[in-house]
């Protein structure tokens, strides 16, 4: 890969002098993009952190109202898709065209399963009026148990136990964040799946080899990042307080 001159690889763009320069530029570019993504989600996580500190009771109650099973299945599915993605990168590194394509398809399938389950979960939220907005309604069946717990005292004179009005307002904040966070995550998945389709097509056409597979590698980095976001979202949204 380094140093020794090859005849021009067909994928070498004119403004790069070597394939390895091109690859390193591409991979660094993807990492800088992920740097941006980390800060993008970082803004959401700080918002979540603040309101969870302020309205712990509501967050616990709202989180408890979410079914844990679909979330757990999705965790398994998404980490599984990360594995298949990693394996397709490995296959492209080692010149196995068929395996590259197959692992990519597996990744697409798992990603779609994740989104399918997400659709089911969203539909469930709509049904229970857990979508923030004018029709939002959080029945306080969990509220009574939650009331036993102390909310983190954020401001002096802050009410420790929430009345139904406040519970309604503050669980709406939880669900607002739930939808913004999982919605943006799902949007990233959709973009990822579109990219995966393109990459799969290119791999199928035999565009990649052990010397030129940066697009597969970069797609992989993106996909793993999306996986990491979910790794944090899962406990933060589904597991705020499950004991008692």
């Amino acid at each position: 890969m380094h140093g020794h001159d090859h005849a021009h690889h067909p994928a070498l763009q004119h403004h790069f002098s070597t394939m390895s320069q091109q690859r390193e530029a591409g991979v660094l570019g993807m990492w800088v993009f992920l740097l941006t993504e980390v800060l993008f989600f970082g803004g959401l996580f700080i918002t979540y952190t603040l309101y969870r500190m302020w309205y712990y009771e509501a967050f616990a109650a709202a989180s408890k109202s979410i079914e844990i099973t679909p979330g757990l299945i999705n965790t398994v599915v998404l980490i599984g898709s990360s594995l298949t993605m990693a394996l397709s990168v490995r296959a492209s590194q080692t010149n196995q065209r068929k395996a590259t394509v197959n692992w990519l398809i597996a990744t697409i399938i798992l990603g779609s399963v994740f989104l399918g389950i997400k659709v089911y979960e969203y539909a469930d939220k709509f049904e229970h009026h857990h979508v923030p907005g004018p029709s939002f309604q959080f029945a306080s069946e969990h509220g009574a148990e939650g009331a036993a717990h102390e909310a983190a005292p954020a401001e002096g004179g802050h009410e420790v136990t929430m009345g139904p009005d406040q519970l309604q307002r503050t669980t709406q904040i939880f669900f607002s964040l739930y939808f913004v966070m999982t919605g943006l995550h799902a949007l990233h998945m959709i973009v990822g799946i579109v990219i995966l389709f393109i990459i799969t097509w290119m791999a199928h056409k035999g565009r990649f080899d052990s010397e030129y597979h940066a697009p597969v590698e970069m797609t992989g980095l993106y996909w793993h990042f999306v996986d990491i976001v979910w790794i944090f979202l899962f406990p933060l949204l589904y597991l705020v307080e499950r004991h008692n």
Binding site: G43, L44, S176
Partner: peptide, 24 residues
Amino acid sequence: VLGTPVVAITIVMVFAERAFGFGI
């Protein structure tokens, strides 16, 4: 690359609050 995404997500949240009646 470090700062712009934070204002981007902030605008998304303002937008969600304004357009869909989310509470943030």
